[in-house]
Simulated scan of single mutants.
Amino acid sequence: MRTRYRFERRTLLTGGIGLALAAVPGARVPLAQSLDKVSFQTNWRAQAEHGGYYQAVAAGIYRRHGIECEIRMGGPQQNPSQLLLAGRVDFIMSNGFQALNYARENLPFLTIGAIMQKDPQVLMTHAGNGINSFEDMKGRPILIGASGRVTYWPFLKAKFGFTDEQIRPYTFNVGPFMADRMAIQQGFISSEPFAAQQAGATPRVFLIADAGYQNYQTTIDASRRIVTEKKDLVQRFVNATIEGWTAYMKGEDVGAANGAIKRDNPEMDDAKIAYAVRVMKEAGIVQSGDALQLGIGAMTDARWKSFYEGMRDVGLYPAGLDPARAYSLEFVNKRVGLT
C-alpha cells in the first residue's frame, strides 16, 4: 500500500481533477428553485477522511440546502491554496498553518470551519519494543518528512526535547519501518498504522494532538469576498457540510458516499474506509473538545490564540501577528447536527 501523508502532500498539490458527484434522486428541492453551484477542492485523493463531504453530496444534503456542490479531488500535482488564490475554486480543504499564513502574508482568505478538532498526525513504533511514550523517543532516530520539520517537529522539540539530529528521511512507505523493530515514523492515525498492520506489524500509535499540538485540520477555507458578498450561500454550505459529517460519523446510510469514494479513488476499499472511520471515532478526530458542545466544525478564539502563540514560541510565526485575521467564527458554533 502506498503510504499517504496528507499534510506533506498538501504542500505539493497543484492543478485539478474535477469530479462532480451526482446528487441522489428524491432530494427535497423545489423544482422551480435553481441551485447555487459551488466547488470544493480536497487536499488529497478521495478517502474516509473526506467522507462527510461525499455524504452531503450522495445523500442530497447540499441539494436540500439549495446547493450543487462539485467535489474536486486532490492529488500529487495540485495545490488547493494556489487554486483558491487564483479564484478557480470556491472553498478548499486546508489546515491551521495555512490560515496563519493568510494573516502573515495579508492575503484576502480565511478559515471558516474546522472539521477535524484533532490533527491526525502521529508517530508510530512497534509494540513491545520499550518505546511507550513520546519521552521514550528522545534521542532515537525518527523518520520525518520535509513539511513535518516545519509544523509538528518544532512542537515536539520544545515539548519533549527532541533534536534535529534525530531526523531521518521518510520515504512514504512502511518498508524501513517493517525492517527495524526500533523504528519510529510519522503517519496519519487513519492510514500508516493500517498499512503496517497489513504488512504484519503491531504498531503502537502516539497522536501528537493528545500531547497538546493544537493545529486544526481539514479546515474549510474561503475568500473574504465570498464570505462578505454571499453570506447566505456560505452559511448553507457550512451547515450542509456539518450535517454530512454528522451523518457520516454516525454511519447513517453511508453506502453511497463510500461507493463514490471508492469509485474516485480505486486504492480505497471497504477495509481501509472502515479502519479510518473507526480510529477517527476512537481518537475523537472529528468529534471532541469544542465540537461536543458547539457542533462539528467548531472553532474558538481561545484555541486559535493558543495555537498561534505556541507556533510563535517555537519560531514558526513572528511576534505581533493577529491570529483573529486568519479565521471567522461567523458560520460555525451553531450546534448544527447536535440533538
Rank of each mutant, 00 (worst) to 15 (best):
M280C: 11
F91R: 00
R9N: 07
N101D: 15
V279H: 04
W153A: 05
V286M: 06
R140C: 06
Q293T: 15
G251C: 03
E229Y: 07
G255T: 13
P266A: 01
N258A: 01
S147F: 11
D36S: 15
I67R: 04
E8M: 14
Q214P: 01
Q121F: 14
I208P: 07
A46E: 01
E192D: 12
P266Q: 00
Y170Q: 00
R312Q: 10
Q47C: 14
K250W: 00
S328M: 03
M124G: 10
K272M: 06
E330Q: 14
I184N: 12
E105Q: 13
I226R: 14
Q166P: 14
T163V: 12
G337S: 09
G212T: 04
G145I: 09
L107W: 03
L83Q: 07
W245E: 07
Q77K: 12
Y62L: 06
R303K: 14
A20H: 14
R88F: 05
E165H: 11
I242A: 03
F172P: 04
P176C: 12
V150P: 00
L19E: 02
M73E: 08
L143P: 02
T125L: 03
A183D: 03
E243R: 09
R168C: 09
A209G: 09
A86S: 13
I131G: 05
A298E: 08
K157A: 10
W245H: 05
A201K: 10
E243V: 10
N79F: 11
G161T: 09
G315V: 12
Q82D: 10
R149D: 00
L110H: 09
R104F: 09
W44I: 00
G75T: 01
N173Y: 04
W304K: 02
R4A: 01
G18I: 15
V174Y: 02
M182R: 08
G26D: 10
P120D: 07
P193T: 11
N79W: 13
D253E: 13
